[in-house]
Design a protein around this nucleic acid. Sequence first.
DNA 1: ACCCCGATCGTA
DNA 2: ACGATCGGGGTT
Length: 175
Amino acid sequence: MTRLKKDYFSQPTLEVAKDLLGKELIFREYKGLITETEAYIGQDDPACHAARGKTPRTTVMFGPAGVSYVYLIYGMYFCLNIVTEAEGFPAAVLLRGLHLKHPESKNLNGPGKLCKHLGITREHNGLDLTTSDVFYVQDNSLKPGYIATPRIGIKVGTEKLWRFIIIEDFSAIHD
DNA sequence: ACCCCGATCGTA
DNA sequence: ACGATCGGGGTT
């Protein structure tokens, strides 16, 4: 059991997005298994926030891997991403689902619900998950099966199957 | 300064 | 099917 480091998040985004399934997200007192992700990859991906270049909001996506990208969506919800790939290449993995195991068992399906329940807001944007002691991803031995589908809520780039969902039911698993 | 609209979600 | 709610970013 080891914490995922810079080298891990620097891999190709699709690899990271798939491999993060089943890994443990730790945020303060919360711990849960990642059950759903989406990949947003570079300026050729029209659905990527950084598709039209670097702006104040998307600056962190151009930065080093393993850093959080948190943004406000629809004026009401926050979404949590982890930046991937080489510095200068804007890409990230959106965390869309978490099977919370601690301090309570709860299925957080949806990026807005995930952030709301954990208390993740704009103030958690730009944090380095590879050095923080309270916000990071922990490796484990799980190798869950998954399916790939189009990404949710976008109007462009829908032909890419860049959403990944765990098949297994983790409701009975605890550490 | 203005305006459009979005990587969502709960309610109807 | 739809409204809530507001900031990012392009346009005037």
